[in-house]
Design a binder for these strands. Structure first.
Lengths: 353, 353
DNA sequence: AACACCCCGCAAACCGGTTTGCAAGCAAGG
DNA sequence: CCTTGCTTGCAAACCGGTTTGCGGGGTGTT
């Protein structure tokens, strides 16, 4: 600001009406004084917990406007019950599934005027317990848990504190919280049905760890679907990976070594499917000519590999959205039976099958 | 606890010493009463702002332990200055660069006992202004801005509120805040040097938007490097994309249409480079045989495409770490000259060049 | 005119900490 | 024996809101 210097004090802010110290934010007392009413009345205007006459309300609102008054977050939190804050705990942000989930959740919560605390607990920093206890201390309204490593016991303190909890991705294990997840058995069934449609009769699977969340149901769905189509699940054609690309390549190699090798392979996620493509290339097998491959998730990379991956799309962002909506209703009614929501998937046909 | 029932009141929690309501958390008054001292003394034990005798401190600490007392976040925040909270504003979580950044930042902040508020402002929800004002209201200690859409004017209120600000990725535009970024001119120079080493003499570029953050310096670096190697930058061989895969394909097609078409193309990010690979495939050109391609970022997908992308790796997670460290020192000393930190990149040679 | 009732606003207590001013206890110094 | 100064702890005010109990004034009923 290039002006002639005023020797005394510069009035650099434009808050004309502020009577006291112009640099600290306006308080409810300032509003009350300038509006000629009591703090109580201002508070009632703000919260609407008791009726206030139109004239008074208008006057108060005008002063609030002029002063740019905002309620002090901490003063409100000291007595109030809600903090308009939720926490999101994810397993590993570098896995593309979670950022998409986070984005959907964050948008939904923002629409409801809530703010999101984020913790990626995959690397052990912060420790799960420490973060959850922070969340309790900060009186978050709710928590979305999208991290398979977290047990019911670790969640218990949240529920004890009256905090809404929604978990993502583990429909069998959680008995006490709302759960949002993909319909994992049907995902596997749909993949098998598609491959069967394409004429494949000898199928194999690269499953996830068989006792964890999406691993078990996808394996079960695969087996059931085979039987439903009159095929017999062969133990030999069931391999296991740990969701990584490398494990997928290894499992695929094993499958291709079989006497009667499968003509189509269902991989329980895209990263392992991409690994399977790696293995096929190394072995000199054409995809889908010699062997077809189907994945699950539809991560961005699925369309980048060559051949582009046919996959079952699991809409992570929508899951985040749904988790947010569910959390909002859960915050409203903390008790009540746990709800399970299955989010719809869809088949994305590309080149690999 | 299986004991004979005491008819009067059940002591279901194990907090033997709690006198009052056993279900609401312990307060500092509880601690004071049980320790036989005043609130003041307990507060001093907690904060260490005044000396307390060893005996008293031990006694107080024991009671704190027994009660599981934790300071009320809101009561502390009402008077105290620090909230152990920072905000992270990112442009678009579905761009793999940002989750990696977020992870690094979050880990660093967790090590310092801070919690991260996350906002993805790419979709306009929440609006930037609204989120930043929320951050001010919640008295965050600092903000990391990793969103190119945010202007200095929008950041000003933060600085006015004494909040530390660190921006990521825009070393020229920000004059008032600390900036962490990649060394974009040298990234381009290194890419050009590598291609020159490989014998390429006719180069082209798919640049980013020429007036935005990493777009301009990478283009400038490319031009300067050409001259440094005795080559003349050709306007015709300078195309522009908007960081997306599709725009990269389009730009590449234009380059390949040139009379004297480049034998090597530098793409200002990986997504556009992948688009360039798409275009080359469509045109029936072999990479790197007919034309070499180099990208920037080293996103996960870079190793998935075929041919695998040779690229300049920009360590997003490290940038997050560095931003966190810088923010911590900035929180400690709010004033002082703005600092710029350039994070080291590295060349990752794969198949495309 | 008397009574009940509702509407509206205020003063004061309270949430759970932090911070300040003061004083008692004690050891060292003169 | 009397200062001086340091250590240690307390009571009370304060941060900025929310909530409760109460009373004055206006309206409707009998």
């Amino acid at each position: 600001m290039v002006t002639s210097g005023t020797p005394e004090k510069d009035t650099r802010t434009q808050t004309v009406l502020r009577a006291e110290d112009p640099r600290s934010p306006a308080t409810i007392s300032d509003v009350a004084r300038l509006a000629g009413v009591s703090k109580t009345t201002v508070s009632h205007v703000l919260s609407g917990r008791r009726p206030v006459s139109d004239a008074t309300r208008a006057k108060v609102n005008r002063v609030i406007e002029e002063l740019g008054f905002q309620q002090n977050f901490f003063a409100t939190g000291l007595t109030g019950r809600r903090t308009q804050t939720i926490a999101l705990v994810v397993q590993d942000l570098t896995n593309p599934f979670y950022p998409a989930l986070a984005r959907g959740l964050q948008q939904t919560m923002a629409e409801h005027g809530h703010v999101v605390l984020l913790a990626d607990v995959g690397a052990g920093v912060p420790p799960v317990g420490a973060f959850l206890s922070e969340a309790v201390q900060r009186r978050v309204d709710g928590v979305v848990v999208a991290a398979i490593d977290i047990s019911d016991e670790q969640i218990e303190p949240l529920r004890a504190a009256g905090i809404g909890v929604v978990t993502v991705g583990d429909p069998r294990r959680r008995t006490t919280t709302d759960v949002i997840s993909s319909d994992d058995e049907r995902i596997a069934a749909d993949a098998v049905a598609y491959l069967h449609d394409q004429g494949h009769r000898r199928l194999g699977i690269v499953s996830g760890p068989p006792h964890t969340a999406p691993g078990a149901p996808r394996l079960a769905g695969y087996r059931n679907a085979l039987r439903a189509h009159g095929l017999r699940p062969l133990k030999a054609a069931e391999t296991t990976g740990d969701w990584t690309r490398e494990s997928g390549a290894k499992a695929m190699t094993a499958l291709m070594d079989l006497e009667r090798r499968p003509t189509a392979v269902f991989c329980a996620n895209d990263l392992m499917a991409i690994g399977a493509l790696d293995a096929a290339r190394v072995l000199g097998l054409a995809v889908p000519g010699d062997v077809a491959v189907v994945g699950v998730d539809d991560i961005d990379a699925a369309s980048l590999v060559s051949p582009a991956l046919t996959t079952i799309r699991v809409p992570a962002q929508d899951i985040g959205r749904v988790a947010g909506e569910q959390l909002m209703t859960r915050i409203g009614t903390p008790t009540g039976p746990a709800r399970r929501v299955l989010v719809q998937h869809s088949l994305v046909v590309r080149e690999s099958a």
